[in-house]
Design a binder for these strands. Sequence first.
DNA 1: AATATTATTTAGATTAATCTAAAAATTGTA
DNA 2: TACAATTTTTAGATTAATCTAAATAATATT
Lengths: 222, 222
Amino acid sequence: MDNISHTEENYLKAIFKIAEKEEGRPVNTNAISVEMKTTAASVTDMLNRLSKKELIHYEKYKGVTLTIKGGRLATLLVRKHRLWEVFLVEKLHFSWDEVHDMAEELEHIQSEELVERLDDYLGRPKFDPHGDPIPDAEGNFTFRKQAPLADLHQGEKGIVVGVQDHSTAFLQYLDKLQLSLGAQVTVVERFDYDESMKIALNGDKEHIVSKKVSQNLFVQKQ
Amino acid sequence: MDNISHTEENYLKAIFKIAEKEEGRPVNTNAISVEMKTTAASVTDMLNRLSKKELIHYEKYKGVTLTIKGGRLATLLVRKHRLWEVFLVEKLHFSWDEVHDMAEELEHIQSEELVERLDDYLGRPKFDPHGDPIPDAEGNFTFRKQAPLADLHQGEKGIVVGVQDHSTAFLQYLDKLQLSLGAQVTVVERFDYDESMKIALNGDKEHIVSKKVSQNLFVQKQ
DNA sequence: AATATTATTTAGATTAATCTAAAAATTGTA
DNA sequence: TACAATTTTTAGATTAATCTAAATAATATT
């Protein structure tokens, strides 16, 4: 009776993800149906089930929040997902745009002992291959001061630490430009016309990147 | 329409496993229901589904055999299961009695690319932590001449290469006796009374092992 | 060969997860 | 406030996987 299905886990993750963006406000049915690519009716059904299992607080028409139990579970799923991504990239040499779907399956593997050993084996990484923080076994996320590249002024420097957009297209484009995590970027010039900017990579190679790119790339100012 | 569920995969594995023991004779419903710990009625249901997907040849009351497609899939599952077991033991330092259930989940992870990379990463092992052969990407098993320890005569020597019984209890007992894969055993004396035998481990430490133990341990004669 | 036993299948229900269509509640706007 | 638009829920069906109980087929035994 306490078993949680993959589907239920996916709903919890979806709710967690939306709640993150919405800063804790109750998550509404429609948002979940969009995230889960399903109908609102199916979501309502599932919300009743999750509520019965005390994984969410749910009041008809009022949206949902995660219970302590639900939140812990969602965080564990995020932890597992990101650790497996590190494994796939660091050990099996996949590239950062290939690992999402596999991690989406691997995160459902049950054993907590496995997660802890995997974490050890990987050297207790604090961030995944996209720069997203990996919660520790207690569920604590490492916080890092970061800003979209778009926020830097002319002359400012930053280290690439993450991405907002996780799409294959974006990640592969970044690879082409050699804009990988750890790269140093300097804003050489900003162009008001289309809000693009010229950047220098590791003080050398120059590129012009669009507004869309600079908004989706996180840097740590230096 | 070509998607195969975890449950369907588990049935294929069960059929494959029974067919192995039965040397290719059609597998009957009851045997499957025992292996799958379910009712014969559920099995019949599933056989119809697998047959529709052309994974098995099925005739009412006549039992089933795997189709080429079904056999390939079952072999891939065995390959994945055993490779993940190697990973868990070699890389995450689990012991051989702990890995079965985790591998049972991991074998359902889809990506074939992942399997091949995992295989590479592990150094293309030919046998898993219990000494069972790991089929290669083409589905070929490495054959090895082996015999139950029980078959050795007084004075004969062998190297432990596998187990028949995979139960936790047996594996843990072997650990206690330091009877791990690769150990050399010499049959010091055989006792007709209860068919137990005295063995020497790596030409040194002596034990008396029961008939049950010697029948469930595979050795390669030297 | 007739009967008893065992194996297998069918029939009918159940549960999780989903859907469409319709109803009800909430929110936005004139 | 009243009406319109949007969001959410309910009702009723569907599919996969399961079950129990009953019926049927195959096999074994006298």
